[in-house]
Design a protein around this nucleic acid. Structure first.
Lengths: 198, 198
DNA sequence: ACCTGAACACCGTTCAAGT
DNA sequence: ACCTGAACACCGTTCAAGT
């Protein structure tokens, strides 16, 4: 009925059935209504997805750039992005598509950019660092590298002698994803610091 | 007709019309045939996409890990991934979906993992570094951060005072993407080196 | 062996008609 | 004002029938 209830149901279906599992007819059924009724509240399926995307990105908190140094600002922004995206992994491919066109994304990137410039980075460097942050955040949310391994370990043992079987157990996959993101982020920040201004 | 000709036409349509622009009927028309005929050579649309994905990943070269140190191995692998993916940006969301399930991806990750372990990293660290590499590569290929800005600069000037207008001109967007990837990769490698073994 | 026409069960979206 | 039924132009996929 309300736009907010439609967005909630949309996200529920995406979380449960995947991005391909969302159809306007299924969404309507979830809301106890006919598909055509949705078009009184939503202009288009694509538009609805953008609204849901905006709602998710609205939860990203980049306030870590107020006050502290750029290192902690970058770290807290990265983790906030990660936790917002990790809650709804199925919609990430859609989120990643053109972040620059999204109002909510731009407001946050503007804060990150401003914080980096205030710390002494050039405007161009600030843009590139913010881009690097997006690479890490979306790449980590999207590829869910480790969790893809969990199904049948025998395959890996025989054919890919170098891959680490011990860390591919389902139980540790999530922890490994977390630690991999932490290592990548900390290395990124450390590496930047090595060429930092001021 | 042949499986290879079908894959070529598939990629042509994806490059031209996007992932959503690919339909079996359109693909058939491109090949001068009826949609039903495709199912004599291809089991399913999803399967066809996986074949095309494999063909693209087959071109990624991780041989930089033979011989040289892990730093140059990581760099050359990253750039090879980047150039392979950058040639077909529209299929990247599909590629990123579950790299661990893909034969061609696993062979390359096995080489990367082996190279890192040979350089003295633990198996677990090697897995995490390889994951970080995937984050950067897929994130960079997917979010095409800078190129999304190019349409109307007046919007940014007024509302996002911190964002750097000078670097958002269409002409420099591509260069900025390149340099952002380079900065992120170099920072990642430098940061890792700070905690390197041996 | 390879292609086709027709059909099936789906899509997103529109629109006149109902309350 | 809000919902509906029916329709339109599409999908992926199957399968008997044609050459």
């Amino acid at each position: 009925m309300s736009a907010s209830r439609i967005r909630t149901a949309t996200l529920l279906i995406i979380d449960r059935d995947g991005l391909d599992g969302l159809s306007m007819r299924k969404l309507a059924a979830e809301l106890g209504v006919q598909a055509a009724s949705l078009y009184g509240h939503v202009s288009t399926k694509d538009d609805l997805l953008h609204e849901v995307a905006a709602e998710i990105l609205e939860k990203v908190d980049v306030s870590g750039f107020d006050g502290g140094d750029w290192r902690s600002g970058l770290r807290s922004a990265a983790w906030s992005y990660r936790s917002a995206l990790a809650r709804h992994p199925n919609i990430v491919p859609f989120l990643a598509y053109g972040p620059a066109h999204r109002e909510a994304s731009l407001r946050r990137l503007d804060v990150v950019h401003g914080g980096l410039v205030a710390a002494g980075w050039s405007r161009r460097e600030a843009t590139m660092i913010a881009a690097g942050l997006m690479y890490l955040v979306f790449g980590a949310a999207l590829s869910t590298f480790s969790s893809g391994f969990s199904e049948d370990q025998a395959v890996y043992r025989d054919r890919y002698p170098n891959l680490d079987k011990a860390h591919l157990l389902p139980g540790v996959a999530q922890e490994l994803d977390h630690d991999s993101f932490e290592l990548a982020l900390e290395s990124f920040v450390t590496g930047l610091a090595a060429r930092a201004p001021g």
